Simulated scan of single mutants.
Amino acid sequence: MSATPLRIIVISSSVREGRFGPTVANWITSLAKEREDMQVDLMDLAEHPLPH
Rank of each mutant, 00 (worst) to 15 (best):
V24K: 07
T4C: 05
L50T: 05
P22K: 00
G18A: 00
V15D: 03
P5C: 00
I9W: 14
P22H: 00
R35I: 13
A46K: 06
D44R: 03
P49S: 04
S30Q: 10
A25G: 04
P5I: 02
V24Q: 11
A25T: 03
V15G: 04
D41K: 11
E36V: 13
E36H: 13
R7H: 03
S30P: 07
W27L: 15
A32G: 09
S2D: 09
T29R: 02
P49C: 07
R16I: 00
I28N: 06
T29F: 01
R19N: 02
R16Q: 03
E17K: 10
D41G: 11
I28L: 12
R35L: 11
R35V: 14
S13D: 14
P22V: 01
V24N: 11
T23H: 15
T23E: 13
M1P: 15
A3H: 11
V10W: 02
E36S: 13
M1E: 13
S12I: 02
E36A: 13
K33V: 06
A32D: 10
V10T: 02
G21P: 05
S13C: 15
A32V: 10
I11E: 09
T4E: 09
D41T: 12
S2E: 07
M43K: 08
I11F: 12
P51Y: 06
E17P: 05
S2F: 06
M43F: 10
V15M: 07
E34H: 11
S14F: 05
A46T: 08
P49V: 06
L42F: 02
G18R: 00
H52L: 12
R16Y: 01
R35H: 13
G18T: 00
M1K: 13
H48S: 13
V15Y: 06
V40C: 03
P22L: 02
T29A: 04
E47T: 07
A3S: 08
I8P: 00
M38D: 09
I9G: 12
P51S: 06
T23P: 14
N26G: 11
Q39S: 13
I11P: 05
E47R: 09
L42T: 01
M1C: 12
I28E: 05
E36Q: 12
L31N: 13
P5R: 01
S30T: 11
L31T: 14
L45V: 07
A32N: 07
L6H: 09
L45Y: 05
L50N: 05
T29E: 01
D41C: 10
E47A: 08
S2H: 11
G21D: 04
R19W: 02
E47G: 07
V10F: 01
A32S: 09
H52D: 11
P22S: 03
A32L: 14
E34K: 14
V24G: 08
